[in-house]
Design a protein around this nucleic acid. Structure first.
Lengths: 210, 210
DNA sequence: ACACAACCTGACCAACCGGTCAACAAATTT
DNA sequence: AAATTTGTTGACCGGTTGGTCAGGTTGTGT
């Protein structure tokens, strides 16, 4: 069991400050891009003097890197439900649910990730070439197995994965567009549920799993 | 018929300079984002002195706006094939083809557009609320008609459109990621064809049109 | 050939940015 | 409670950026 760790005043303050800075940075980087974001703006949003940011994160790049790593972790773990699933309906269905939830809960992080990749992944190229490549290979193998077992139509696992990523992330990255087309209002709980169902239905039927 | 308009030296030079600047700007904005792009970099890439850029485009914002408008036009016209189609197989199939071609031919423009929307559409919000809203309404009606005519399963037209946008644009916006997962090489002609087929097959089957 | 307008550009500037630092405050250790 | 480590911050700096402008060049109409 986890002990109720006693945090010294210092450690507690450090923890909170880092969290506040990271949260502010995530939002500012998402809304302004790396180049458009300023340390001053992040500092103001975090309620700290700019010099204090540089005490916790030496450079703008270092802070940005931490923000990207954070969302990448969440992104990867979304596929936990993918494994050990008996078939595509459960596995891919749960994956869509998880990724749609991420899009709703972490829209800023999703945008930062999208922005990073769009600009050629200057700071996380190594992750793409190692962690993400392995991850993708593993899931593609699972999908291929389902195909071989006749649990779904023969589709290219890669392109199916791209479609899953694209569709689920779209609700975060292009959330503003969707909101505008929704009469300027964010999707309601019911509309989010409908979105999830639509995506799941079309894709699962599209791969011949239902 | 279009007359072979005689361009004076001036008009010809103006045309070429503007085109060169816009092409350079599209690339730089796509790779560095609006905030990260510099007029100097665009000028260097266009092979013109920076001051000359400001002669043609007064401000960075004005130049950026032109770039965004340009890709928006292409984006809208991609759906010409959508209309007058007898059913979803032809209409949506052609639309997917057209949008995939755009992703391949105009990856920079696609990224600029994505970036603009992701950042809350600061310069083209009015377009979203007028042109895009009308456009979307029109296509959604067409899809609904096909549903009513029994030519496809009853799916929410909006979410289908989002899925089409997301999936096709993904190949441009996340092209770097796809390239990395493809062994660091861009998709070949054959792979692009396979991508198109995969997308069309999954979606058309997903909406019960085939 | 002349006059006028359009075009071009090196040099320049004020504003802003990321990052530094010295001086100070607070917590922790001894 | 003294000493030491850790955290805090206003003021500052060199470098870069978007944008300006005066003075020159080129093309066009007359």
């Amino acid at each position: 069991m986890a002990e109720p760790i006693r945090l010294s005043k210092r450690d507690a303050a450090r923890r909170e400050n880092e969290a506040r800075i990271l949260a502010a940075a995530e939002k500012v980087f998402a809304e302004a891009g790396f180049g458009g974001a300023t340390m001053q703006l992040i500092a103001d949003m975090a309620g700290l003097p700019k010099a204090n940011l540089h005490y916790y994160f030496a450079t703008k790049e270092e802070l940005y890197r931490k923000v990207v790593q954070q969302i990448f972790e969440i992104w990867l773990h979304a596929a936990d439900s993918f494994d050990n699933a008996p078939g595509p309906v459960e596995g891919i269905g749960a994956y869509i649910d998880a990724k749609m939830d991420i899009s709703r809960k972490h829209p800023f992080g999703s945008k930062v990730w999208a922005s990073e990749v769009m600009h050629g992944a200057p700071v996380i190229q190594d992750y793409l070439e190692t962690t993400l490549r392995d991850w993708t290979k593993g899931r593609a193998d699972v999908i291929q197995r389902w195909v071989d077992e006749g649990k779904m139509a023969p589709v290219d696992p890669r392109h199916l994965l791209y479609m899953l990523w694209a569709t689920t992330q779209h609700y975060a990255d292009f959330g503003h567009q969707i909101e505008t087309l929704n009469g300027g209002k964010p999707l309601s709980d019911r509309q989010w549920k409908e979105a999830k169902e639509s995506v799941k239905t079309i894709i699962l039927r599209g791969i011949g799993a239902i």
